[in-house]
């Protein structure tokens, strides 16, 4: 009898104090996730726009991120319950995309483009200037760093599609450039103060390249 009992593996989950709850990863039921009504309604409205409700996964995750600052596990479970998909499915989607955060991401987002064209015009210095202004470690900032006060999420970014205003940055989803190192400090101050950021550098206000200074094909950058 004795030699028949095989040496059993220590249940690693128990080991790690993670005794699995059988239903933890299944599609959660709405009444178990207490999803805020407005969030539920927004996600439902999004789902209604598509022939297949699953198409709303990115919009739903955007909604979660807008509400909680990042795609929190609870937020993901709430969205999953509304969409009738597993939380794992949504986390998998969220983690694929650069703009969806699966960890805390501050109140303000500053993305500094460090891709070819911006790099050619001083992006690395700009990123360092922002890192200094926000108090982040410049090396960390290349891949994303939170300022010590947790307010600003600073990250080097691949081409943001604004090489014409290189070097540039996206600040709370709006584009600004061309920026000098000095602009970084100003921008961060304005951000934290809650005022308008670098109005004169905003892309929105910038005329077509060919129309700058009135004359088409004239005027230097």
């Amino acid at each position: 009898m004795e030699e028949l009992v095989p040496e059993l593996p220590v249940d690693p989950a128990v080991d790690k104090g993670r005794v699995p709850d059988r239903s933890s990863a299944e599609i959660p039921e709405l009444h178990d996730v207490d999803c805020p009504d407005d969030l539920r309604e927004e996600i439902e409205e999004r789902m209604s726009r598509y022939p297949d409700r699953k198409s709303a996964s990115i919009p739903a995750l955007w909604a979660v991120q807008r509400r909680y600052g990042w795609c929190t596990p609870d937020g993901i479970r709430q969205a999953a319950a509304v969409m009738r998909v597993t939380p794992a499915y949504l986390e998998s989607v969220a983690s694929f995309y650069d703009l969806l955060h699966t960890s805390p991401a501050g109140e303000h987002r500053v993305h500094v483009c460090t891709n070819i064209s911006c790099w050619m015009r001083g992006a690395d210095d700009l990123l360092e200037a922002f890192a200094e202004a926000a108090g982040c470690d410049p090396h960390e900032a290349r891949h994303g760093a939170l300022s010590p006060d947790g307010k600003v999420f600073l990250s080097g970014f691949e081409c943001l599609g604004a090489c014409d205003i290189a070097p540039m940055a996206s600040i709370d989803e709006r584009y600004f450039g061309p920026l000098e190192a000095a602009d970084a400090a100003t921008a961060i101050e304005q951000l934290v103060a809650g005022g308008e950021v670098l109005p004169e550098k905003s892309l929105e206000r910038r005329p077509l390249a060919g129309d700058r200074n009135g004359a088409r094909g004239g005027g230097d950058a």
Binding site: I116, S117, M120, R121, C163, D164, I165, A166, L208, A209, G210, R212, G217, G219, D220, A221
Partner: peptide, 11 residues
Amino acid sequence: VSGRVKRPGNY
């Protein structure tokens, strides 16, 4: 057109 030119932009 972008990079090391005087007037980067869309033409």
